[in-house]
């Protein structure tokens, strides 16, 4: 089952602070969506509304066409895993897994066992005695084994070490391909995860900055590599996102699409063209307060 999401004029305020300011967008079901934004941009607030962890101040959230808040049919198909994990800290890992198995209709015990082994989780230990990385791995295990049609991870893998994070990405992709569902990944580790994204939603200051397919977004910029002087001449009138130089060779990421004639000109000048890193685009798109819709 693949749940689509519609968000219309969504606003969330905490007292005088506006966390989300009239968001409107739609997420296609059955895809992996990247949710990107700077600290305090409203990512966690948005996910908490999609998961019915709270009610919006104004506007609407529709999951599979219906409002999720206090809707048992929707929330049982929704799983939001937050960084700290919403679980019993004083219980043993095995109990936490068993608890989730009882409440999650799509629970895959075999997958849970495999992930526990792969992340080397001590099942007899209490959650409170786990390291930050192990708690993150447990949270990831809960989110994946639940196999909810709408699964969301909110910066859950930040505490994991590199091998564990790569194991998570690999397992997530494999399981997604075998059991397609709607997945939203909110993360700051953009380059690590960007290859998983099919769609990207960037928000800043509670508003949508960009919502596009990952491929389309990558085409909004280019990476040019070649002799430094040639590169400098070519990018002189363009917005440079990042640059690196090694000896006389320079690599520059620029913002803005290149038309076929410009691409031909770059190739003729001896420059290599490549896709721009999503992270560079993200930094550029969120660096000032102007919202680029």
């Amino acid at each position: 089952m693949e749940l689509g999401i519609e968000v219309r004029d969504l606003t969330l305020r905490y007292g005088n602070v506006t966390a989300l300011d009239g968001l409107t967008f739609g997420l296609t079901g059955g895809k992996i969506h990247g949710l990107l934004g700077r600290n305090g941009s409203g990512k966690s607030s948005l996910l908490s509304l999609l998961a019915a962890f709270r009610r919006p101040t104004a506007g609407r959230v529709l999951v599979d066409g219906v409002e999720p808040f206090e809707n048992q049919d929707v929330v049982r198909m929704t799983c939001l895993i937050r960084e700290g994990g919403d679980l019993y800290a004083s219980e043993r890992v095995s109990h936490v897994l068993e608890f989730a198995a009882r409440l999650r209709p799509g629970w895959d015990a075999e997958l849970a066992r495999r992930l526990v082994d792969r992340f080397r989780l001590p099942t007899r230990s209490r959650v409170m005695s786990l390291s930050r990385g192990q708690r993150s791995a447990l949270a990831v295990t809960l989110g994946m084994a639940a196999r909810a049609p709408l699964t969301m991870f909110d910066e859950v893998h930040l505490g994991m070490d590199v091998p564990s994070r790569y194991a998570f990405y690999e397992e997530l992709l494999d399981d997604y391909l075998a059991h397609p569902r709607t997945i939203i990944l909110s993360t700051h580790l953009i380059e690590e995860v960007s290859s998983l994204f099919e769609q990207v939603l960037i928000i800043d200051r509670g508003q949508v900055v960009v919502h596009a397919s990952a491929d389309e977004l990558r085409q909004r910029g280019s990476a040019l590599t070649g002799p430094a002087d040639v590169v400098d001449r070519f990018v002189a009138t363009r917005t440079v996102l990042s640059e690196q130089q090694l000896g006389s060779t320079k690599s520059v990421a620029i913002y803005g699409e290149l038309d076929p004639a410009q691409r031909q000109m770059a190739a003729a000048a001896g420059l290599e063209l490549g896709p721009v890193a999503l992270q560079d685009l993200f930094v550029h798109l969120t660096k000032d307060s102007e919202v680029l819709r």
């Binding site: 019915a52 206090e70 048992q72 929330v75 799983c79 937050r82 919403d86 019993y88 409440l103």
Partner: peptide, 16 residues
């Protein structure tokens, strides 16, 4: 304080 948040996070409505 302890159970309601955990159950809601595991797909149970507050009402239920």
């Amino acid at each position: 304080t302890l159970h309601l948040p955990v159950y809601v996070a595991h797909g149970v409505t507050r009402r239920l």
